[in-house]
Structure formats: C-alpha cells, structure tokens
Amino acid sequence: MFEHVVINIMQLAYVLLLAPLAKGVLNRMKERLQGKAGPSIFQSYYDLRKLFAKDEIVSEQSSWIFRAAPYVAFIAPLLVTLLIPVLTDYPLFMAFMADMVGAGFILALSGLFTALAAVDTANPYGAMGASRTRMVGFLVEPVFMMIFFAVSFTANSTIPYIVQQQWVSTPAAFFEPAHLLLVVAMLMIILAETGKIPVDNPSGDFELAMIDEAKNLEYSGRGAALMHWAGAMKLVVLLTVLLNVLLAPWGLASKVSIGAVLLAVPLIALKMLIALAVLAVIEVSFAKLRLFRIPEFLGAAFAVAAIAMIARVFLP
C-alpha cells in the first residue's frame, strides 16, 4: 500500500514537472524546423517563475468563477493523472474511480470554468475566444466518444488500465486498421483540444484570431502562471493517453517497485519526445485553418473514428 501511494505521487510529479519541459521542447523543435535558433527548452520554467513573482491584478467586478478557474484548470489534469497509466501498467488505488469517459468529463469541466471566466471579465476578446473554444469542444466530444466505443469492443471496458492491457496485446495488433485509424483520430483531437495548428496558432498574438489563448488575456501573476501550467499539463496528459493507452502501451513498469518505476521514466520520456517531434512537424507543415473550416477538420476526425469502430466490429 505504501509503495502504491509513493508511485501515485511519482506519477503526479512526473506530469507536474515534465509539462513545462514538454512545452519548451515542442517550441524549440518548431523553431529549429523553421531554421531559427529558438528559445531554451527551459524557457517555460523561467516564464512560470516570472509570473509567480508578479502581482496578480483581479477586477473588483469579476466573480468567484474568475478567481477559481485557474485552480480548477490546474487540478483537472492532475486528477486525470490518477486515472491513467502514466508510469505503470498495473492499476493503482484510484485507477477505478472513473473510466476514460469520466476523465474526459473532468477535462471538460476545466474547459467550462475557463470559458466562463473569460466571459466573466467582460472583455470582448475573451468572450469571443471562449465561444470558439466551446465550439471546438462541442465538436471534439463526439470524436472522444467514438474512440471510447471503439476500444470498448476490444477491451470490454473503458478503464484506461484495462484498455492498455487489451488494446494492443500483440505486435500484430499494432498494424490493424482500427488501431491506426483511432490513433490518427486521437492525434487530430489532441491538436484541437490543446490549441495547436491547424486548429489554432498558440504563438499568435492577434486577438481577433485567438481561440485557446484568448481565455488567458485577463489573467496576470499567479493566475496566468496556473493557466499556462495547466495547458502544458493537459497536453502531456492527452499525449500520455495516446501513447500509453492507444498507441504503444510498452515501456511501463510492470512491478510494484519504486526502482522499476524509475527505470521506466526514461523510456516513457523517449516516447513523449517522439510524439512532440511529430506535433512539431505537423505544426510547421500546415497553416492555421479558417474558423469555418475547423468543423470540417473535426468532422474528418469523427469519420476516421467511426470507420475505425466499424473496422473493429466487422473485421476479425
């Protein structure tokens, strides 16, 4: 029991501390692919330290939602971390508190709070970005559900640890059409949920074109730091679901041992590095879609997931 608690804390620390580094590595990769020097991979840590050191300015007219939203957004990815296989392939003591659908609801709750907080400030750009993020979220949720239904046909469950053990149980299963199509669909919704190109431009500073970043316009100091940190953790959590549950659930610790978990960390970090490289290539290879083309992009993701489910049901 004690080792399970320690390993759970290690998983939380892994996501908490790796998230800013993952964001920094991704930004550096994109700059290098464009022929630029790029910032340090540790720049996200410097930015967080600077924001935490600054005073936080909150309007007297804002409600409790504006003050609570950064904490809800920060805690939500950590709660999901307790439900998914981050470092181990065996379930820990909170693994069965919710399934993949429940984890999606937790992330959706944080998105709802941040959208309400953006509207609460009465900043027209924040409300505009919030409405766009809700549109993207509304289109992403059916794709999530279709992916969950497809994996449940194989694993007979939507618990991440059970899916991880049943979904790609053999090397031959890796190349099955349903598996590859679901990985593509999941990658597409990760791009949408984390505000990456082609859905959104995370480095853009033009308010009228912002989607995900528009929710953070009114935050400063600690609130801004928590929002940026939460966004980085959300990216790591979604990539972890893609890598450790759907794509290649290998390299995880299989023994209830702190030493085995520590040995698994570099292997999992290597998988994360490869995934970040793929995201960097996608972001520098495509242009940002116009707003009315985003439903077409996510509609294509839904079609891919639906074909994957049909293939999983009817193909042996």
Rank of each mutant, 00 (worst) to 15 (best):
F74I: 06
A108K: 09
M100R: 04
A68M: 14
V140N: 03
P171Q: 02
W167M: 09
K54N: 12
W250I: 12
I84L: 08
Y90N: 01
V80C: 03
K234W: 00
L289K: 02
T133G: 10
P70C: 11
L276A: 09
L51Y: 14
M135N: 05
Y219A: 11
S257F: 05
I9T: 10
V15L: 10
V256S: 12
K234Y: 00
V245A: 08
Y90F: 15
V101W: 11
G231Q: 06
A127R: 14
H179S: 12
T154M: 08
M1Y: 04
S203F: 11
M128D: 12
A22G: 10
R49N: 11
I282Y: 04
D120K: 10
L191R: 09
F297D: 06
I9S: 13
A277R: 00
P85M: 01
Y125F: 15
V241P: 01
I57V: 15
P70N: 10
F42G: 00
A224N: 10
M272L: 15
S203A: 14
R312E: 11
Y219E: 08
L82W: 01
M100F: 09
W64Q: 13
G126E: 05
A108Q: 05
V281L: 14
N201E: 14
V256R: 13
P142L: 11
M1K: 05
A306L: 15
Y45Q: 03
M29I: 09
V245N: 07
L238K: 06
D89K: 07
N244A: 06
T240K: 01
M186S: 11
I75Y: 05
D212V: 07
D205Q: 13
L289P: 08
L12M: 13
F302G: 01
P85W: 00
A192C: 00
I189F: 04
G38E: 07
L239D: 01
A300N: 05
P295W: 09
D205I: 02
G111W: 06
V278M: 02
A127C: 09
K196F: 14
T158P: 02
Y219Q: 09
F113Q: 03
P198V: 01
G35F: 02
E207Q: 14
L315S: 08
Q166F: 02
Q61H: 12
Q34T: 10
L87H: 05
A155P: 12
G104S: 15
G231T: 00
N244K: 04
I7N: 03
V256Y: 01
R290H: 13
I65A: 04
L291D: 13
G299M: 09
A306S: 14
L291G: 06
S257G: 03
V151A: 10
A300K: 02
D99Q: 08
M10F: 14
P70G: 10
E176V: 00
E296I: 14
L238N: 03
F314V: 15
I9F: 15
R32M: 11
L87T: 08
L83Q: 04
M135D: 02
L252C: 07
P70W: 09
S257L: 06
